[in-house]
């Protein structure tokens, strides 16, 4: 009984963008985007490179000041960021890199170490705790960056194409690690990527944007986002990838016309 009650009252969106536009000087980057992100959902933002999808992510994270429109976020939502580059401090070992957010928040040393090791464990990187960034492979560096983003247990994780520079195999490994982590912890995840297969594999919903200025052209629910997530097949995934690709290609063709 309580479970049906939970279904009828949808959780309020963790983040809501309404009529958001943004420009850098005279270059229009984002035009009139309205989007909601439910608490605990996984959304992928997809679009041609340079279209302004990263700008949308940065607006959500308040790394850019909002030009026009509104951004609603639950008060004291904690954010975690992972960028295209790992952004590790070369003079610190992995554990102390992961602990940086806690250190800057003033947590005592023993707690920092314990929580950093726990975060490393969640990314299967515990063995590398005392190694330095230059001793890590690209995939391990990215694991460390995600562990750092998660160390303060954020409610929202913003991912700006974190696996874009990795080779195919490593990328799949990290996609899988991220997906398992999200399924276990259910933070709100927003991922910018230009890989549609990656988006379809990781996210519950794919949002497709047009070439610059970024305008929303399609919202596609992936097999993962449907109720019967357990029963979906490879074909469902393929259909979703095709649908998103078609939307993207149509948007590109439309902008050229």
């Amino acid at each position: 009984m309580p479970s049906t009650a939970r279904c009828t009252t949808l959780p309020p969106p963790a983040i809501r963008l309404a009529g958001v536009s943004h420009a850098f000087g005279t270059v229009e980057a984002v035009r009139d985007v309205s989007l909601e992100f439910a608490a605990g959902s996984f959304t992928a933002l997809v679009g041609p490179s340079g279209c302004g999808k990263t700008t949308i992510l940065r607006l959500i994270g308040e790394l850019e000041t909002l030009g026009k429109g509104s951004l609603e976020r639950e008060r004291d939502t904690t954010l975690g960021f992972a960028f295209q580059e790992p952004r590790l401090l070369p003079w610190r070992n992995v554990r102390d890199n992961i602990a940086l957010p806690l250190e800057l928040a003033g947590a005592p040393r023993a707690e920092r170490h314990a929580r950093a090791l726990e975060a490393l464990d969640r990314m299967q990187l515990a063995d590398a705790a005392l190694r330095f960034p230059h001793q890590l492979s690209g995939g391990m560096k990215m694991r460390a960056a995600i562990a750092r983003a998660l160390v303060s247990r954020p409610r929202v994780l913003l991912l700006d194409e974190p696996f874009g520079a990795l080779d195919e195999v490593t990328r799949h490994e990290l996609d899988l690690a991220l997906r398992m982590l999200w399924e276990a912890e259910r933070f709100t995840a927003i991922l910018v990527t230009h890989s549609i297969p990656e988006a379809a594999f990781l996210a519950e919903r794919i949002v497709v944007f047009s070439p610059r200025p970024a305008q929303l052209v399609a919202e596609i629910t992936t097999p993962l986002g449907t109720r019967d997530a357990r029963t979906w097949t490879r074909d469902d995934l393929g259909a979703c990838v095709r649908e998103a690709s078609d939307a993207l290609l149509a948007a590109i063709a439309g902008s050229r016309a």
Binding site: L63, R87, L104
Partner: peptide, 14 residues
């Protein structure tokens, strides 16, 4: 200093 790291510190409220 690296612009990305500087942004990281800003995000972390340093």
């Amino acid at each position: 200093r690296d612009a990305g790291l500087e942004e990281l510190f800003a995000i972390l409220g340093a």
